[in-house]
Design a protein around this nucleic acid. Structure first.
Lengths: 153, 153
DNA sequence: GGATTGATATCAAGCGCTTGATAGCGTGAA
DNA sequence: TTCACGCTATCAAGCGCTTGATATCAATCC
């Protein structure tokens, strides 16, 4: 126990923003996984369920685009979640071999439980930072994302 | 091409900080990989080389702890980099089966090239945000990390 | 001194994702 | 009508990492 909490200091000092971002995100993902594990839900499951919840009737391909993974990865995830009875595949009216994805009632319940955990994390962060700083953090992160995606100088 | 740039809006709205952080980090990692690819260096290679550079003579196990991966993953990486002639394994004086890791001159050169790319990213971000905001972003990210790691309320 | 503990490295198997390739089907141009 | 194109899903193989288990050796305890 007691993770050593060491870091590649040379890199941290050289590129503080990039490393602060990576460290924070890794910590966030790690805690997310710990909180979701008792529910039997992997972070990828949560992301998938959340996306289907926000856009019922999605196809696997569209889901893959939104999650930034390949259609094969989505197919594998969907198969597992469907087998658990959390997700339902209905064939599209026009295109029969296209599958529209919908949450089942059980799926909605599971998502609700998972989302409560994530919401608690978000709330603790917002409380600690304060609403203003939280908003500012989001704005700064968006700026970083835009900057980084701009064509290289 | 043209990534659709769509997002699971339900989740973004529900947990703005967590998602802004994830989006920004994913964008950062994606660009990092694109910039490193022409050099034949994966992000994991870069992180490993950087860590060995900052602490020459590290063992594989210690390296694994610092990179937050398993010793097996490190061993695989080290084997590849040693085969390329970028990394050298010297057996420890007392413990013969323990390997101390050192960069070769070629390894240092490769790391230099890679680091120039990452440094350029950091610089563009800092220029865009301004020094003050960049410092503030780092502070906010550190606060997020601390908050998230605190024992649950 | 000889057994136990702890840290190292390494072998083996599994998992989740990737790239690559294939097949079905609706749409629009020739 | 027909044929090429685009988007869907899916099969197959590979890769990087994980968990689990094992062997070796220094340090420590009895």
């Amino acid at each position: 126990m007691g993770s050593a909490e060491v870091e590649p200091s040379a890199e941290v000092q050289a590129h503080p923003v990039i490393w602060a971002l990576r460290r924070a995100e890794m910590a966030l993902q790690s805690v997310k996984e710990q909180r979701l594990r008792p529910l039997g839900i992997a972070p990828s499951h949560y992301a998938l369920l959340m996306t289907v919840h926000g856009a019922p009737g999605l196809t696997g391909a569209e889901l893959a685009r939104r999650l930034h993974v390949t259609p094969q990865a989505v197919a594998s995830l969907v198969a597992k979640l469907a087998e658990r009875g959390w997700l339902e595949r209905r064939s599209h009216s026009r295109h029969q071999h296209v599958q529209e994805l919908h949450l089942t009632d059980e799926g909605r319940k599971a998502l609700e439980d998972a989302d409560a955990e994530i919401a608690a994390m978000e709330q603790r962060i917002t409380e600690r930072l304060g609403a203003e700083s939280a908003d500012q953090l989001v704005a700064l992160l968006d700026a970083v994302m835009e900057t980084v995606r701009e064509p290289q100088s």
